[in-house]
């Protein structure tokens, strides 16, 4: 394992070392992040990165393949536009966690605040705590799992993303409705909970999704999502 200290090494050098791991090193540890922005962004290799402390905006943004594990909290936009790989946050996440993500898994052990999963496009997000208002706004595809409660306007103008909430939902957004939990959803949820290390039973959750009255849903395209 190689250790990089942000108290000594500039952020750009840390990111460059992670983005092009020429040494073949697959395991990295970042210390003294002190809320630095854009840490471990744009990674594109199957490496493990541990961040010891709290990070700022856009941590692990655009991630591909890598596993980024934050032992602290993160600011706005964690794992924004993630393509693949895994991002684990031991603490809380601020606004728009996992926004526009195309793939991979984002697991948040604490709470996420507003706009979690906004415009998600295939990412799986599992939040062990609560999420704030306007989460999954215009969410296109992928899965958002919440073990705690959801704030106002969950899933406003949602497309085909699936939302699973164990606790209460303060209010649903436009065109978002509660849906039947079928066996395939219970199976999917069990897999997601397992991957995110979440101790909960799929039967405890309710499923929410699009009523498909707000956008032009064509059943012939159902397999595209």
């Amino acid at each position: 394992m190689r250790r990089l200290d942000l108290a000594e090494t500039p952020l750009r050098e840390v990111n460059a070392a992670l983005q092009v791991p020429v040494s073949g090193e697959t395991s990295w540890e970042i210390v003294n992040p002190r809320g630095a922005h854009a840490l471990a962004v744009g990674l594109d290799a199957p490496i493990d990165v541990g961040i010891r402390g709290s990070a700022g905006y856009y941590c692990a943004g655009m991630n591909k393949q890598a596993t980024v594990h934050v032992h602290g909290s993160v600011g706005p936009g964690v794992a924004e536009n993630m393509m693949s790989g895994t991002v684990i946050v031991e603490g809380d996440a601020s606004q728009y966690a996992g926004a526009t993500g195309h793939g991979g898994l984002l697991a948040i052990k604490g709470n996420a605040s507003s706009r979690c999963g906004v415009s998600m496009k295939g990412i799986d997000i599992v939040v062990h705590g609560d999420i704030g208002h306007s989460s999954a706004f215009m969410a296109q595809t992928g899965n958002l799992v919440v073990l705690g409660d959801a704030g106002d306007a969950l899933g406003d103008s949602i497309y085909e993303a699936r939302l699973f909430v164990r606790g209460s939902v303060r209010s649903l957004g436009a065109d978002c409705v509660q849906k039947e939990m079928r066996p395939e959803h219970l199976e999917l949820l069990a897999r997601l909970l397992d991957r995110a290390g979440a101790d909960a039973r799929p039967e405890e959750f309710k499923r929410y999704g699009s009523a498909r009255r707000l956008y032009n849903f064509d059943v012939d395209n159902a397999t595209s999502y």
Binding site: G35, G56, D92
Partner: peptide
């Protein structure tokens, strides 16, 4: 406005840190 502003405070590592609700 950001965690960075708090990162230098004494004992911040063990303080309760949270985002105020809307």
């Amino acid at each position: 406005s950001e965690y960075r502003a708090l990162a230098g405070l004494p004992g911040i590592e063990d303080a309760r840190v949270w985002e105020p609700e809307p």
